[in-house]
Amino acid sequence: MYGTGLLKGLSVTLRHMIGTFVTDIRKFPRRYFTDGNHPTRSPEPYLHGTFSIQYPEEKVPMWPRFRGPLVHLRDPETGQPRCTACGMCERACPHGCIKVEGEGKGKERKPTRYEYNVGRCIFCRQCVESCPFNAIELSRFYELACYDKDTIWDLPRLLELGDKEVITEQGQFWGET
């Protein structure tokens, strides 16, 4: 009969619509809160229906490996940056968004200037992988919109961001690489 295909298709959408309400009642008050107050990444088990995460108030946690902007790590004993301004990250970056200047020789070498242009960064993580001193890592920040063009971040700011993030070791979520 003409039109059965249409009706059959519409039954799928109808099932989803009803499923939304049924699941909402079954999972009262919030279907996507599974552990404490944190929404999970994908709602599990896979249920019918739709829901919204109320974004600015509720945030989805990022995966440990999420590649956000670069941060610097501190030496846990001295509290100083581990960076020795060797320039490996500068050379590894495909887009030239890192500029490093340093002074001193050998173990005394410290960065005098470290500029990271987050506006050009593509978050490919090659700087981190090239770093031989365990000094940098990518963070899990993602709200990078800003009102003025302060896209060039310097070393104090990168260290401060690194303190906010709980990463202590390079590649701690990436297995043995």
């Binding site: 990444r41 995966w63 490996r65 999420f66 978050f123 490919c124 993580r125 590649g171 990436w174 690489t177």
Partner: peptide, 27 residues
């Protein structure tokens, strides 16, 4: 994409497969 992000760190720009294997083992 959620699974790809979990493994590679990025949803659409994974850069996960490289010559010689993959970047890191699956979580």
């Amino acid at each position: 994409l959620d699974l790809i992000e979990m493994a590679a760190g990025s949803r659409m720009m994974p850069s996960y497969i490289r010559a010689g294997g993959v970047v890191a083992d699956l979580p």
